[in-house]
Write a protein that binds this DNA or RNA. Structure first.
Lengths: 250, 250
DNA sequence: TGCGCCGTTTGATCCACGTCAACCGCGAAA
DNA sequence: TTTCGCGGTTGACGTGGATCAAACGGCGCA
């Protein structure tokens, strides 16, 4: 249903444009526009007018490529991976609607990881130079962008904690609780969802082998904490899962 | 010895002030002022006029405390640690001269880790609100600050890689090579230095137990790659150490 | 409808690192 | 100078997760 203010927009192009805008995006409360006023939103809309479809298995950018934009996930699901010279690679993050990709590239002007779609997806392109420009004029935007970067750092510390001092069960529990919360924030069920990534990708992110991930899933299921079949997960006992992720080994 | 330009500054306060300024700080090429012109540097000096001494073992800030400033290490050495409810804690980083601490706090306005001095140290206080203000007016400062945050993210990805897919020897090699480079960038010897942290702190950072760290040090020494006694390290074969950190297990 | 592939599950075995314990050595305090 | 305590080293042993291997099952494609 078109909003009253859009009713007199007669050109299809204009309508398309409207659909692209942050101001009408369902994810604006999770994404870059958080805290912006109506007028400010309009200015951000002028900056973010390009979108791009990314087919499953293809990448937005790859390590080594020139950095010049950030990407906001509009729809779909992504992973980022870094790789060592010897071919080993590791998943460093999973990204869903409203989350920002590409901040790793600012420091060196080159991307340092690959951002790969785990399903057919769509991203909004945020030219970084213009974002800096605009955030020089818009206090709120500037501050919110700093918050987003800071949270990425805190998230990474959480993963370091997980990789450095948690056992396999605790890691998977933490992973599932985190996914659950993020689905909830996006209006999806926190207790029932489809995993977009393989066991191997989960393992890579958690510093485990796929067999271990599979075994821990089975153990959780045996203990009645959740049910899994393939990529479909239903969490039955979130409190127990949550308790597990901060518990001593013995 | 006072520099010629400071010779006619008669008030002790003024001299003190001069010593505090970024413009005369030996670390300015590594720290926040990177890329600033003379006039810009002066403006930054007006912002960063407070310093603080931190005794060994005490902290600049602790998790949960209100965030309102960043801290640049002027002298000394720090670790940051996060802790789980159950008491487990983990070192998330080591910081030396010219590096910025506290960016984790921006996102939630509360610090999320403790920043503890590993030796008597000194930090410059950078009030964050004023930094945002100034970086709205100064392009270069804004961009450099974004780069610093981005590099923190990339550094964390490196640690995640290390924790998630490297063996103990590779981890310690990577750690030593990293330290070596950072000492070099600060004009110290890249091949001979004193560790400011204990084996336990190294282990915590690398996801290993102190005994393992100790054993790997001994193994490296037996193989002639370095010599260690207590906290004194002399690296004999950097190339071999470097080769080790990107090698397959077998 | 049947075939083949890839992701997953499960079992048997191995090994890198953790755990537990003893001892050493340096530096601070008495 | 001796003592004490903490950080570090080293050894013996245990174990969580890796590795190797086999089989399953859902899905795309012929």
């Amino acid at each position: 249903m078109a909003s009253p203010s859009a009713a007199h927009a007669v050109q299809p192009l204009s309508l398309d444009r409207l659909k692209t805008a942050c101001s009408t995006c369902g994810l604006r409360e999770l994404c870059l526009p958080v805290g912006l006023s109506g007028e400010e939103l309009d200015r951000l809309d002028n900056l973010i007018y390009l979108r791009k479809s990314i087919k499953k298995g293809t990448s937005i950018y790859r390590a080594g490529e020139r950095f010049d934009a950030l990407y906001a996930v509009r729809a779909g699901f992504f992973k980022t991976t870094v790789l060592l010279e010897d071919g080993r690679d590791q998943v460093t993050g999973f990204y869903m609607g409203g989350e920002l990709l590409g901040m790793d590239g600012i420091g060196t002007e080159k991307h340092t990881c690959d951002a790969v779609a785990l399903e057919d997806s769509e991203v909004c392109i945020i030219p970084f130079g213009r974002l800096e420009e605009l955030s020089r004029e818009m206090h709120n935007l500037q501050h919110h962008f700093h918050k987003v970067m800071s949270r990425e750092i805190v998230r990474d510390h959480g993963v370091m904690m997980l990789l450095g001092s948690m056992r396999a069960e605790e890691r998977l529990a933490a992973f599932l609780v985190n996914l659950s919360q993020r689905f909830l924030a996006r209006g999806y069920s926190p207790s029932e969802f489809y995993l977009r990534m393989t066991r191997e990708e989960i393992g890579s992110y958690l510093g485990l082998k796929l067999e271990t991930v599979s075994r821990v899933f089975s153990r959780f299921q045996d203990e009645g904490m959740l049910s899994v079949q393939q990529k479909h997960v239903r969490i039955i006992d979130i409190p127990r899962l949550r308790a597990l992720m901060g518990q001593r080994p013995c």
